[in-house]
């Protein structure tokens, strides 16, 4: 019970902090960076649902991010569609594309899936880059309108944009939380754990993987669309593989397959990058090895380290309580309980 209360306090505290943050800093640049990192977080949550909870490492997510961004950009700039309608259509379109690609991609497994999605991502990038007539090619797409007013609320100031993105981030987290902590989420995790076992448990793996994949691409598309509306200028580079790697780094360092990993990882790396600006393009000199190091020693990232520590502490507590009970009742311990509760890496 205390744990539940604890968690609720933490979550409330964090939301409160996020709401108050722009009023505290009052620094437009800081708010800008924070808004951007929220946008990345949405994409990272999408990737997490697929790679972290369903076990399929997609390397095409920058592509879907770009599809979302370009859909919004083209709909608003070229077709003159209202921003909100365009946002919905962008997500929808990304989702449909995700569905079509997922139908084929998810027939492959493991390495093949990673390579396949890597290539899909590259095709999307190349099409955006080369299809000058539609996307503006290397010149990019400029003049994307800011989100249009909803009644009296306008989205021109940086603070209002911040809250808009925060709203979508919270919505994303809410959705992902509900999914992960449901039978559907358990089904995804069963697939991640062992697809063969999931099949023998009567789970239609293809259907579930597809649901996870499509959702994941929709979140990537949403992030892209918000990015387009926020930055107001997009170029083909947002679909390049480096963006996928960025998302992956945020996820891995925060903790893949954890609820809070995307937040922790994105915030940490985005702000660390700000402080490491003198490194500029060389920041991967630090993050590259960090990624390899974490995956070897702490595959569940920072959040994983924290959870491990908590679990150990609980186990120790449990053990000492047990020993006390034993002394009282002099009951024989059953063979398993005294077994080492420390986490053993899956082998």
């Amino acid at each position: 019970m205390s744990v539940l209360l604890n968690r609720r306090t933490v979550v409330t505290g964090l939301i409160l902090f996020a709401v108050l943050f722009p009023f505290v800093t009052r620094n437009d640049y800081v708010i800008h960076i924070m808004t951007l990192s929220f946008i990345w977080m949405i994409g990272v949550y999408g990737l997490n649902l697929l790679a972290g909870y369903t076990g399929y490492l997609s390397l095409a997510h920058a592509g879907f991010f770009a599809v979302g961004a370009y859909s919004l950009g083209l709909l608003t700039v070229e077709a003159g569609v209202n921003f909100w309608l365009a946002l919905i259509l962008a997500c929808l379109f990304t989702g449909i594309l995700g569905f079509l690609i997922g139908m084929i991609a998810l027939r492959t497994r493991e390495h093949f899936f990673a390579i396949y999605t890597l290539c899909v991502g590259y095709i999307i990038y190349l099409v955006i880059y080369k299809w000058d007539g539609l996307t503006g090619g290397v010149r990019g797409l400029i003049g994307i309108p800011a989100p249009s007013n909803i009644g009296p609320i306008s989205f021109t100031s940086s603070i209002s944009q911040y809250f808009l993105v925060l709203f979508f981030l919270l919505l994303t987290i809410f959705f992902i939380y509900r999914i992960v902590h449901s039978l559907t989420g358990r089904t995804f995790m069963a697939i991640r754990n062992s697809e063969d076992l999931a099949l023998t448990l009567g789970i239609s793996t293809m259907k579930n993987k597809l649901v996870s994949f499509v959702l994941s691409t929709i979140f990537a598309g949403l992030a892209g669309a918000l990015y387009a509306g926020f930055v107001r200028f997009i170029g083909p580079d947002i679909g390049y593989i480096t963006i996928t790697f960025d998302l992956l780094i945020y996820l891995l360092i925060g903790g893949i397959g954890t609820m809070s990993g995307p937040i922790v990882g994105t915030l940490l790396i985005v702000w660390l990058s700000q402080y490491l600006q003198f490194l500029q393009d060389y920041r991967m000199l630090v993050f590259g090895p960090l990624l390899a190091f974490l995956i070897i020693f702490y595959p569940w990232g920072i959040v994983g380290i924290f959870q491990q520590w908590k679990q150990k502490r609980q186990a120790r507590k449990a053990r000492s309580i047990h020993q006390e009970e034993n002394r009282k009742d002099e009951v024989e311990l059953d063979a398993g309980v005294s077994a080492d509760q420390e986490q053993v890496r899956e082998g």
Binding site: L57, F245, D281, M284, L285, G288
Partner: peptide
């Protein structure tokens, strides 16, 4: 002996490092 997703990510880490190194 790690799950298959791990070595792919580690390889990406190496890739990013080497590219940054070359650029540096």
């Amino acid at each position: 002996d790690a799950p298959p997703i791990h070595d792919k990510i580690a390889a990406i880490g190496v890739l990013l490092f080497l590219e940054a190194l070359a650029q540096w």
